[in-house]
Design a binder for these strands. Structure first.
Lengths: 140, 140
DNA sequence: CCATACTGTTATTCTAATGGTTACAGTTGA
DNA sequence: TCAACTGTAACCATTAGAATAACAGTATGG
């Protein structure tokens, strides 16, 4: 799996932990330990789904728009990494006349897509608030 | 996810489809569309778990040792790709004193590991025989 | 017992994916 | 208008992944 999911979850948890629920890409990047530009790219995806709002200009940054208990990890996964469970590489040969070689890629595709759905059902049960809780408990 | 899982499933399905349940790495590689050496590497993993037997020397190759209806995709995933759901990249800074930055990696680790377990529960319900069936149905 | 046809494994090379960095235009408030 | 932000795209560096080569080990048939 793609690490933009990790970055997105971390960023939202970080925002949720702040009293004003705001931070700049720079502050988030320092906490996440990556480049501000990468944060901005991921935040862009989250903004398009309405989980955060952006304020440009001086005193700007990112603001958590949703309640931490309403943002599920499934939402975040869908916004950042859908399809990433499937490897890029495909086996077989679609054009060939062997039934296995020609159909395997399509069948595996279905299997990966079904598996991802199950994964999402599980991620549906965890929210940004839950993750923040877990972080705080782990910190003791 | 790692494509060795795909190669392993494809190879086992291919073996299951053969009347004698045998094939050389060369024949499997042609069907899967990769290099024989890669097949041998993956088959080595499957052999260690007892799903196939190897015969070296002339007339040798790989033999399906289990019943196709007993080999689940979860078994194959465990043999080839366990842990591959988790990205290599980790956020935060374990040494730092911010509770979020220092704990996030561990919490995400747990989340990925739980998610992988759910995935395995789903893969548990599909066998090599089922995949072969699906391939045959898709071929019509 | 030797030539042949296999597997097992490691090392090397090539390619694609990923993450880091830079650059710069656009936006906003003091 | 300047300074502090975001939005994006482009580029570079690193790493992971796949293909290939190489060769030792093993079994079989002549």
């Amino acid at each position: 799996m793609n690490s933009e999911f990790t970055i997105a979850v971390h960023s939202l948890v970080y925002l949720a932990s702040r009293p004003d629920r705001m931070a700049t890409s720079d502050a988030i990047a320092r906490n996440v330990n990556t480049h501000p530009s990468r944060i901005r790219k991921v935040m862009s995806l989250l903004r398009k789904q309405g989980y955060i709002a952006t304020k440009e200009g001086i005193g700007g940054g990112y603001l958590l728009e949703c309640l931490p208990e309403n943002a599920t990890l499934a939402d975040i996964y869908r916004a950042t990494s859908i399809g990433s469970i499937k490897p890029n590489w495909c086996s077989g040969d679609k054009q060939g006349n062997c039934s296995i070689a020609s159909q395997m890629a399509a069948v595996m595709d279905e299997i990966f897509s079904d598996t991802e759905k199950k994964m999402l059902q599980h991620l549906e049960e965890m929210t940004v608030r839950d993750v923040l809780e877990r972080v705080r408990i782990a910190h003791r």
